[in-house]
Amino acid sequence: MSCGLSPESALSVSKKVQLKNPTKPDSVLNFFKNHGFSQTQIRKIVERMPKLLLCKAEKTLLPKIQFFYSRGIPSSDLSVVLSSNPSVLGSNIDNCIIPNFNSFKDFTRCDDSEVFLAYKDCSNILTCNFQSIVAPNVAVLREHGVPDPNIMTELVRNPIKFTLNHDKFRRTVEEVDKLGFNPFKYNFLGALQVLLQTSKSTWERKLNVFKEWGWSDEDFVIAFEKFPNCMMYSEHKISKAMNFFVNTMDWKSSFVAHRPIVLSYSLGKRVIPRYSVLQVLLSKGFIKKPVNDSFLICSEKEFLARFVTPYGDLHLLKLYKEKMSLEN
């Protein structure tokens, strides 16, 4: 019984639920189709939650869809979010979805659409008890002096961190505090995000990569305080970037540590194309050797205006685009 699914999907679903007749499954599939879900989106939902095929669509699914409609969530957003994270469709509307939706909205004072988008990244926002999971972790941040506006912004943008084990969350907040981060600055929460997501072994491996490229302990502290996300990149990306900055661009390792934001830039789409343009200008004597990172930090529009457009006869725009296509 394929229920309109591909043979592969039907086989996968059949291993998880027993479909004795097509009546309920067909009504569920038609329900999603009638509410604007594409065949691909329906397949994703069924593969993730095959038990939905056994429910009564009008009784189980319709109230939830109607609730989100009542909160101004358009069907286009509804289909995208629910197909990527359908767990809320298996939760109770009255005892779980509505109270958690309202709690999150009241707590953060954000729009209904922002609540729904937060759920997209973290199903616990609507499927688990908000007051017992999220509120205690928020309280820890308040205890350490993190301003409410910063907490609420982060809760909407990155809700998953607030649903982690409370003891681990508290220990990590204390660790960020001991590292000397100012709770009034937003990078306190940035450092918290990194430490929560990075295991001790991964942390040590990445730290060793930086040390292999010449960073001292002091260099690392400076870089991490300025840009905590420098520890979110893979060891390969870190090493490849440091290699280009140090060996090709002839920057000192400590120079990168004081400007760690450059590690976030794509070598292929930003660093190499821009550096290639500057090399031509240097060879022609139009500029002196750059000693800072301004040509990397400036916007695309500003870079073109400063280093490409004034030298039209050098065909720099063609070179710039060619380098970007080669490195992608």
Results as ranks from 00 to 15, higher is better:
residue 238 I to E: 05
residue 106 D to E: 15
residue 283 S to V: 03
residue 147 P to S: 04
residue 101 F to N: 03
residue 326 L to N: 07
residue 68 F to T: 05
residue 92 N to P: 00
residue 242 M to N: 04
residue 258 H to K: 15
residue 161 K to P: 00
residue 156 V to A: 02
residue 190 G to A: 05
residue 152 M to Y: 13
residue 87 S to C: 07
residue 65 I to W: 08
residue 183 P to N: 08
residue 236 H to V: 13
residue 299 S to W: 03
residue 252 K to G: 12
residue 110 C to N: 06
residue 45 I to A: 02
residue 162 F to C: 05
residue 82 L to D: 01
residue 7 P to C: 11
residue 172 T to L: 07
residue 148 D to M: 10
residue 90 G to H: 03
residue 49 M to S: 13
residue 50 P to I: 06
residue 165 N to V: 07
residue 118 A to Y: 01
residue 58 E to W: 03
residue 107 F to Q: 09
residue 104 F to D: 01
residue 149 P to R: 08
residue 59 K to Q: 12
residue 10 A to S: 15
residue 262 V to W: 02
residue 215 W to K: 02
residue 191 A to Q: 02
residue 291 V to D: 12
residue 196 L to D: 02
residue 315 H to S: 10
residue 60 T to R: 14
residue 24 K to G: 04
residue 90 G to E: 13
residue 203 W to V: 06
residue 66 Q to M: 12
residue 190 G to V: 03
residue 70 S to G: 08
residue 196 L to S: 03
residue 155 L to C: 11
residue 77 D to C: 08
residue 61 L to S: 07
residue 238 I to M: 07
residue 57 A to C: 09
residue 224 F to A: 10
residue 28 V to I: 14
residue 304 L to K: 14
residue 184 F to Y: 10
residue 111 D to K: 15
residue 221 V to F: 06
residue 288 K to H: 09
residue 312 G to L: 04
residue 73 I to F: 03
residue 47 E to P: 02
residue 247 N to M: 08
residue 239 S to H: 11
residue 39 Q to V: 12
residue 75 S to P: 00
residue 240 K to V: 13
residue 103 S to K: 14
residue 49 M to G: 02
residue 302 E to A: 10
residue 254 S to E: 09
residue 291 V to M: 10
residue 87 S to P: 00
residue 206 K to A: 05
residue 108 T to I: 07
residue 95 N to L: 10
residue 151 I to F: 04
residue 327 E to H: 15
residue 266 S to W: 08
residue 195 L to E: 04
residue 47 E to W: 03
residue 254 S to I: 04
residue 48 R to T: 12
residue 273 P to K: 03
residue 16 K to C: 06
residue 65 I to N: 05
residue 26 D to M: 14
residue 164 L to Y: 10
residue 10 A to F: 07
residue 111 D to T: 11
residue 84 S to M: 11
residue 300 E to P: 02
residue 213 W to C: 09
residue 224 F to K: 11
residue 281 L to I: 11
residue 222 I to Q: 09
residue 316 L to S: 04
residue 229 N to P: 00
residue 130 F to N: 02
residue 273 P to M: 06
residue 103 S to N: 15
residue 17 V to G: 06
residue 33 K to I: 00
residue 169 F to Y: 11
residue 311 Y to W: 07
residue 286 F to H: 15
residue 290 P to A: 01
residue 58 E to P: 06
residue 310 P to H: 07
residue 144 H to R: 15
residue 161 K to Q: 15
residue 52 L to D: 01
residue 25 P to L: 09
residue 283 S to Q: 13
residue 180 G to L: 10
